[in-house]
Design a binder for these strands. Structure first.
Lengths: 344, 344
DNA sequence: CCGGCGATATGAAACGTTACATATGCTATG
DNA sequence: CATAGCATATGTAACGTTTCATATCGCCGG
């Protein structure tokens, strides 16, 4: 009886796909003339006599044996897989996050089950349902549904969205980032600041960027204008707003803080069309600082979110052994990076 | 004995995380006064008397029962999960692909296990190893390692990279896209075309873009220049090349085809710095046409890859029941979209 | 009224592991 | 030398499903 599973490189043609079952521990045990339990120990790195271990390892290699995670998971109730629930990996912020989380998890020996929800609260619930059936060891979610039902025994870490003290949330310091942007702009000589926002209808952590900005302006006795739009409205209102605030070729604002870099780039283009120079006439700061953006030639002065650290922190929190004293909110520090749309 | 598992919304504080085991089919069977096998049938939509079905369903709801995918997977050898192996989800092309594949899979009831390899051939092999242990039902891979060893019984679909006739590959028509770009440029009056490429050291499908471009030029009796760089060299050589080909304020080329949109945007910026106008002095066509790019204000004339269709096709091929007559290569048609860097 | 048939429910075996209680072989001790 | 004690291997019983052979039931024809 030949149980060995041959592997082929992708380049080799293999017409003969005969259906031989994958070898099991039982097969390895027989091949190595050893008890089943011993084989198990070897693959769990438990103490086993040196000669036994060698015999088992050789037999396993000969047969091409691989542990069956499903059998193991059934028995141990640990699957070494965690669910990552995101609205949309297409968004550079989310995809950078996904990258970080996925690799942090894999480094710790965990698999990532990716689900995307398209911002749909019901899809979010369906994802939760699905991954719970799939016995994941934990969930990292960037979700919006405030009524999400989750097995309370299952570790859950929320990114960028605070739910309750018992659900750890990690985000960057959005309020602080807003303050930082205001500070920079004023420091660089701006006296008529403007905050521009576009985003989801449901309020989220990123709203605090504007709050921080306004607060910092107020604190310095400077009044600040804000225009906050929802996705549905599109960019057009910004264009109108800017156009209507030009008098004698001069914009009513000389420093603009945009809620994201993507918005900043759009605004920059609008300003350009309106005959305004950046940063001479108007200075512009965005928010995100996604590396990929910059690599793709997409640069503006910005408040950098530490996405990698958010990812790492989320994973660390999720996998922490001692789950008794988890922080309910971890706010990671942001930083300023000039990118040509400010006078440094 | 209370077996019911209560779920909580994320917003509810739940201090009492008492450790009650999740209910099993056995519990449901007992609760419904029905045999184990009957419960199984209900959850597999097999024929069961109407009253029995109702009793089981009610009992299950009462207990909050959920199928344990691991036990099921162990028994059936089908896990309804597939592995998606990508170099890096941060790249907009890959993330759009991931989005499409993930949602196509979830629509068909499959989970996506995401692994990223950072273009490392050894990491690729480790991923394969890992997902095979995890008993996925198939693999969709965008990998570079030509010596990847894979269980030949496991369905594998390669994206954008051809390995052998027995491994289905789906990609967009890169050669045709190159031809299309050449045709457009020449049609729009260009007479001195240039092809610019930067990318991985290992050759891939996307090299055919340049081949198609050159071929189409040659076919029309027009000679074409090419500069092909590797990632390691960075963008600087392009800058030097362009600068050295300006004579009396006039560039030696009047139409440039870039291997990606990202490159096109960089080149555009360089041309701008060199005092050349786009599209008046030089016309520029990129390749990819990623929607997200455009949304982020990142626009150039381009050859659009049908990423969604690539994703759908890949999933369809992977999940196809009849695996006897799989195509070895599916080339999806690309299209041209003006974006301001050409005279339409 | 009985035997047989079709339909449907039942319960045990198996899937490939882990974990635990037991067996085995040694060494050290009185 | 007998044996307690230790270390290590063994084998079996779960884990929660599916599947299949068997049991049960109701119905119809003779």
């Amino acid at each position: 009886m030949e149980l060995s599973v041959k592997h082929f490189t992708l380049c080799e043609v293999n017409s003969m796909k005969q259906k031989e079952n994958a070898p099991t521990m039982k097969d390895v045990a027989r091949e190595a003339s050893v008890a089943l339990g011993t084989v198990s120990k070897v693959f769990n790195n438990l103490h086993v006599g040196e000669d036994y271990r060698r015999r088992v390892e050789e037999a396993a290699k000969r047969l091409g044996y691989q542990v069956n995670s499903y059998a193991r998971g059934l028995k141990t109730n640990r699957t070494y897989s965690v669910a990552l629930i995101l609205p949309d990996v297409t968004n550079p912020f989310f995809s950078t996050l996904a990258q970080g989380i996925c690799s942090a998890l894999s480094q710790k020996g965990y698999r990532t089950i990716l689900s995307t929800t398209a911002y749909d609260p019901e899809a979010e619930q369906r994802c939760i349902q699905m991954v719970q059936q799939n016995k994941v060891d934990g969930i990292i979610g960037l979700t919006y549904n405030p009524a999400l039902e989750v097995d309370p025994q299952l570790p859950y870490v929320s990114i960028d969205r605070y739910f309750s003290p018992s659900v750890p949330c990690v985000s960057s310091d959005n309020f602080g980032g807003g303050q930082l942007a205001a500070g920079k702009l004023l420091e660089l000589g701006c006296t008529r600041p403007l905050f521009l926002r576009i985003g989801s209808k449901v309020p989220g952590e990123s709203d605090k960027r504007g709050d921080g900005f306004e607060s910092a302006c107020r604190q310095r006795g400077i009044s600040c204008t804000s225009l906050r739009l929802c996705d549905e409205e599109g960019y057009a209102p910004f264009q109108d707003f800017l156009a209507s605030h030009i008098e004698e070729g001069r914009l009513a604002f000389d420093g603009i803080f945009c809620v994201t870099d993507a918005l900043a780039v759009h605004i920059r283009a609008m300003l350009c069309e309106l005959g305004l120079r950046v940063p001479e006439d108007v200075q512009l700061i965005g928010f995100d600082g996604i590396r990929r953006f910059a690599e793709d030639g997409f640069i503006c002065s910005t408040i950098i979110q530490p996405i990698e650290r958010i990812a790492e922190t989320g994973v660390e929190l999720l996998l922490r052994e001692d789950r008794s004293n988890l922080p309910s909110l971890v706010c990671l520090p942001v930083s300023y990076a000039p990118g040509g749309t400010t006078k440094e």
